[in-house]
Amino acid sequence: MTRKRQRLYFLLLGMSALGIAVTLVLMALKQDVIYFYSPSQLTEFKVPANKRIRIGGLVEVGSVAKEGAITRFRVVDKQSGIDVAFTGLLPDLFREGQGVVAEGKLGADGGFAAAEVLAKHDENYKPKEVADALKKSGEWQREEGPAR
């Protein structure tokens, strides 16, 4: 075959090998690449207590309660949930039924003590009028949480 074709095959082979290698590495490193654990993944990855981690999911509707300086809420995914306690300022976009990421530690009691809370918004963009109309007509569908 021509030298040109040789170079092309070499390139394709090299890129394929590289792609496979990168895929394997990323698969092996999954626990380090994910930005947060969903409540289900806390069990799946057997995350220990008292280790600084992040959890994420949806704020369960009706679970937000303020006790003085402490805000309590429940973070859920499709299969499970965890109770969170947080002292501090919540971000503007924090609300029930919305995505949230909390950094802190799992307590021995199975709850989560959060040191920082971030809001995670979804990928839907619409003007207020459209959102209001959807809510009115009952078509408003909350996108399910980010947990996998």
Partner: peptide
């Protein structure tokens, strides 16, 4: 899509069409 991220998923180039209002 592959991992949990703070950044939200795609709004334009995805299955099911864009999830952005036409005005945006």
């Amino acid at each position: 899509d592959w991992w949990n991220t703070l950044h939200q998923p795609a709004s334009v180039a995805k299955m099911g069409g864009p999830s952005i209002d036409p005005s945006m």
